[in-house]
Simulated scan of single mutants.
Amino acid sequence: MEANHQRLFRLPFKLPNSAQSRSIGVYFSGALYAIGAWCFLDAAIYSRKANGSSVHVTFIDWIPFICSTLGMIVVNSIEKNRLIQDAMGSGSFSGSSSMAWQARVILFLGFALLAGGISGSIVVLILKFLVKDFKSYPTLGMGVNNVVGNFCITLSCVVLWIAQNVEDEYSYSLTL
């Protein structure tokens, strides 16, 4: 007889080996962050060394990249058990402790930094490159690289969040 299992998702997500899946997710997340940082730094170096136009990467272009990086650090620094701390005991989220609410607020601020990084890079692309009619690709590419870099950093944060939440079959909690 099969046990009646309730699923959270319609599609069954089965990972072959939790430890291996976690490692692959962490490495993939690091690769995405490296690609994002490389895209942005490539545009910054290109704007100073090889760009023939008057448009350069300035501090305004760095602000979305810094916001995305800080958002990734904040989101992945939160201990995941703090988010659902009292929900397991009481059966609802209404009686959560202040520690759980603090973790949720910090998590929200981290995701707000990530969203601000992506939206800021899109605004910089539009206002600095598209409105001023820089349609040639090497110059326009600096703005596109900023958007691609911030998107890769945000995707890296999501992949790392999921990879850290993969449960091992044989994991034990040794906290007292």
Results as ranks from 00 to 15, higher is better:
155 L>H: 08
157 C>K: 03
54 S>R: 13
111 F>M: 04
146 N>A: 10
80 K>W: 14
79 E>N: 15
31 A>N: 02
83 L>W: 11
91 G>A: 11
137 Y>D: 13
121 S>G: 03
41 L>I: 04
93 F>T: 09
50 A>H: 14
118 I>G: 09
79 E>S: 15
123 V>C: 06
113 L>N: 01
144 V>L: 15
173 S>K: 08
100 A>R: 08
162 I>S: 14
11 L>C: 10
165 N>Q: 11
140 L>K: 13
132 K>T: 01
40 F>Y: 00
72 M>W: 06
108 F>K: 04
153 I>F: 05
14 K>A: 07
172 Y>K: 03
24 I>A: 07
144 V>I: 15
30 G>F: 01
164 Q>V: 02
163 A>I: 08
87 A>R: 10
45 I>W: 11
76 N>F: 06
147 V>F: 06
139 T>C: 11
91 G>I: 03
110 G>T: 00
172 Y>D: 09
150 N>W: 06
176 L>T: 10
118 I>T: 04
145 N>W: 01
163 A>K: 10
145 N>T: 01
175 T>I: 12
48 R>Q: 00
167 E>R: 13
6 Q>P: 05
125 L>S: 06
156 S>N: 07
28 F>N: 10
19 A>R: 10
156 S>M: 10
126 I>G: 06
108 F>I: 03
77 S>N: 05
138 P>E: 02
46 Y>F: 12
124 V>I: 03
175 T>W: 12
109 L>C: 07
58 T>E: 06
101 W>S: 04
137 Y>C: 08
52 G>F: 03
47 S>V: 02
118 I>W: 04
82 R>F: 09
43 A>D: 02
120 G>P: 00
137 Y>W: 13
170 Y>G: 12
140 L>A: 09
95 G>P: 08
39 C>N: 00
77 S>Q: 04
14 K>S: 10
